[in-house]
């Protein structure tokens, strides 16, 4: 697998103009290596979600640079026109709530992405099943999301984020709705994935249960990031 990381330099995002302009991000710098899991923490309104949307190629930054591996994807303007394909192939998303498609079973929820990318149904489902096995939810492959527990749903969501083997995974408060045990299971899973697939993982969180597990943290406050060494506590 090609080793990618994500790097942003002097990234800023301003909403509005003139006197009413809101500077959500001010010259943010961040770098996450392949195989690394970093936390992004900060109070409400600090710019976490805006940064996540910029990193996820969902909204356009106002200035700065963004690299995905060696590829410059933003330099005061998008360098890639097909952001939809970029999101589909290069970025995995894990949300606060799993947001699984309620009318698709577990297997198809995960297999949908490679199918959208043009893979055959058989190949996509085979790959999805492999991933569900890795995440230990293969026995729930044919269950609808409404039949799954919160932890199972979140693991399915992680599988969906991983299915196209993206170099970067962006997780938005993935443990917010889970108890301690399930939250730590999810974080352990993300760490395993980062290690096994050489994926750069950014976890946006408020969750005190999981913050000590990160080896490296980015604090964001008033649109500015501060890097900090984490405790890197081992997850049992």
């Amino acid at each position: 697998m090609q080793a990618y990381g994500i790097k942003i330099s002097n990234l800023s995002k301003t909403f509005g103009r003139g006197d009413t302009a809101v500077h959500a991000l001010k010259e943010v710098n961040m770098q996450v290596e392949p195989g690394e899991v970093v936390g992004l923490i900060g109070p409400s309104g600090s710019g976490k979600s805006t940064l996540l949307k910029c990193l996820g190629a969902i909204i356009e930054p106002s200035a700065g640079q963004m690299y995905l591996g060696d590829q410059l994807i933003y330099d005061n303007g998008w360098k890639i026109s097909d952001l939809r394909a970029l999101r589909r192939d290069k970025i995995g998303f894990v949300f606060q709530a799993p947001y699984l498609i309620p009318f698709l079973n577990t297997l198809d929820n995960v297999a949908l992405l490679p199918m959208l990318a043009g893979k055959s149904n058989k190949e996509a489902r085979q790959r999805a099943l492999e991933l569900l096995t890795v995440l230990q939810v293969e026995h729930r492959a044919h269950a609808l999301p409404s039949r799954l527990s919160g932890g199972e749903q979140q693991r399915i969501a992680i599988a969906r984020g991983l299915i196209n083997r993206p170099p970067v995974i962006l997780a938005d408060e993935p443990t917010a709705a889970l108890d301690s045990v399930r939250a730590l299971t999810v974080i352990r899973t993300l760490n395993d994935i980062a290690r096994d697939y050489n994926t750069a993982v950014i976890v946006v969180t408020h969750d005190d249960k999981i913050i000590p597990t990160f080896k490296r943290l980015y604090h964001i406050r008033d649109g500015i990031t501060y890097e900090e060494q984490g405790q890197g506590r081992e997850i049992l």
């Binding site: 969902i58 939809r84 949300f95 959208l116």
Partner: peptide, 16 residues
């Protein structure tokens, strides 16, 4: 609507 937003986010074409 939320599922459609997710579908669009993960790269589903508008035509789908």
């Amino acid at each position: 609507i939320r599922e459609i937003a997710v579908l669009k986010l993960i790269g589903t074409h508008n035509k789908s």
